[in-house]
Design a protein around this nucleic acid. Structure first.
Lengths: 336, 336
DNA sequence: TTGTAAGCGTTATCAG
DNA sequence: CTGATAACGCTTACAA
């Protein structure tokens, strides 16, 4: 590989026989250039293989075009689906996504984030999960716009996108009741994020109101393995629940698998189950999980849309968006 | 939000009572600064909340620290697992990941990629899949280092990381034979990528050598749904196979589900099944799929390691790495 | 519409 | 080891 040198606007200008500012203007949307000049420039640029240097441009404009995506558990179905939507929509509006992984708990998170600040990212989108409030403050302090998905931070300024978690919890209770279930349980992780707790609270509240038995069990993080453990615990109780709402589809898959394969319990005949997220696996015929769909496409749209809007118009806009999670009926709850 | 202005090295220099070059040196690993000066600078920087501007630095150094990850089907389990490893390891060596999604087939791919070039990414890692050879050439032409995972492009220069796909195909044949299977089939997608075809060829060759019946069926892309269709086709044949190797775990899950639920065929009693990738779902108790594990961590290590090595030492290094996929035994193949 | 010139925040070079 | 000074490639008044 020849350590290729890039061609600069100056070289393009010389070949096109115009000034370097003409070149600049040609590549700046909405600048005034005559059709003739523009053609000369684009031809020269084409011939030379010129690409605007965004580093230099960002330096001048004080705006990098970079938005950084802060995410833990990227490899998880829901997260990666959200990531797909976000990157794709960001690309469509000409922005570029920088990915920050917050899985590892050593200093690498801080390092990565400060990396993002050093690149002068215009904005950060935090896809829920681990990252704590200090990250939020750091971004804000460095002039980034911020989108918080399924979080509940108090800081003013960022756009907050949330679902109707509480109501979802309520809705599923009526579905369980209609199926004739009398003893309900909520299977949660110990993560304790607002969205998880919202589902729990809505569920418990609605069950109480209907005079149904409810209990809550929490364990580990929101993965398949945790679902297995939760099933062990709930299904060995003397008073076994006949309906369980799992805070997450991953939890629900683990729960269903151990109910069926380890305890030989029929789902939905002896046990009704529901989850949340509508990950791809929920629709696989081994599961047929009825669940609430995260409107990932809509979440991504809202986020990107807000980021594309000018900072000036910002005050007019809502800083909080509340989307509703649609209940997808499959076969893990008996017909009423 | 106050449209925050960043503090520059100049301001830090003034507060610390040193020259701006002293500040620069302090933040350049391996530059010579006295301990005293360094302390003055770091103190001032801390107080002011200074962060090096990588845009400007990249401009000078002609090296951005950005490596871009080109990927289609991010939301797929194997891809997202690889993505996790890659971003995390990139972070550890102080580089930053830019994500390019090549799902949509309209012009957005080209736009996104040229975006990456405009940011002067030092390197690109192409995680298999759709992107065609023209992308490879474009990266190379613009002086980027390139890592190709599970591809087979001819271009010289890039680091190529591949698995022993052909041998894996062979190995699984002996496993099937040992289980007493006599009529084999390979379920593939129509994608026709080298790694997919490698598995197919190894499988067919080994089966022939052992004098076993083999057939191949190809359909769609490598997802769950395609697996269902492939199962429809293969299981309605007059001569039904008693062992099927699916090119991908996703394919295998779809295949197994329809075999069991739609055709009532017992796996592994009446039909042995194997996949490739070892995605998380393969280990779920509804599947228990025996499969080949993609060594994602190792793949990521090799890639990042090669990128961290200086361009000068480049010639000495191998430009092609061949990793082996370990066979993970679970319960979708009968005991011999 | 076009060109000239100043500046963005760095690092590299070169005296001291 | 330190401090001027010249790049780096671009945008944006300002003047023509």
């Amino acid at each position: 590989m020849p350590p290729k040198d890039f061609v600069s606007a100056l070289e393009v200008a010389q070949r096109a026989g115009v000034s370097r500012s003409a070149v600049s203007r040609t590549f700046t949307p909405g600048a005034s250039v005559s059709a003739e000049t523009r053609k000369k420039v684009t031809d020269a640029a084409e011939a030379l293989g010129y690409h605007v240097n965004e580093l230099a441009r960002g330096l001048m404009r004080n705006e990098s075009g970079i938005v950084c995506l802060v995410v833990s558990d990227v490899a998880t179905p829901y997260r990666s689906a959200l990531l797909r939507e976000l990157t794709s929509k960001l690309q469509n509006v000409g922005k570029v996504a920088m990915l920050i992984n917050t899985d590892r708990s050593d200093g690498s998170v801080d390092r990565a984030l400060s990396q993002a600040i050093r690149y002068r990212a215009d904005a950060s989108i935090i896809l829920s999960g681990l990252p704590d409030a200090s990250i939020v403050r750091l971004c804000l302090k460095n002039g980034q716009r911020l989108v918080l998905i399924n979080r509940d931070d108090e800081e003013p300024g960022p756009l907050k996108i949330n679902l109707d978690d509480f109501e979802a919890g309520e809705r599923i209770v009526t579905a369980f009741a209609r199926a004739g279930c009398r003893s309900l349980a909520f299977a949660n992780s110990e993560a304790g994020t607002p969205s998880l707790m919202g589902r729990e609270h809505g569920f418990v509240a609605a069950a109480r109101k209907l005079g149904l038995e409810v209990s809550v069990e929490r364990y580990g993080w929101t993965g398949y393995e945790a679902g297995r453990v939760l099933a062990q615990r709930l299904l060995t109780r003397t008073q076994r629940p006949d309906a369980v709402f799992c805070a997450t589809d991953l939890l629900a898959c683990g729960f269903m698998d151990t109910a069926r394969h380890q305890f030989g319990i029929g789902v939905p005949q002896q046990l009704c189950l529901a989850g949340f997220d509508d990950i791809e696996q929920a629709s696989w015929s081994s599961y047929g999980l009825t669940t609430f769909a995260q409107p990932v496409a809509e979440i991504a749209s809202k986020a990107v849309e807000w980021l594309s809007t000018s900072e000036a118009a910002d005050n007019i806009l809502q800083h909080s968006v509340r989307l509703t999670a649609e209940l997808i009926w499959r076969t893990s709850i008996r017909a009423g």
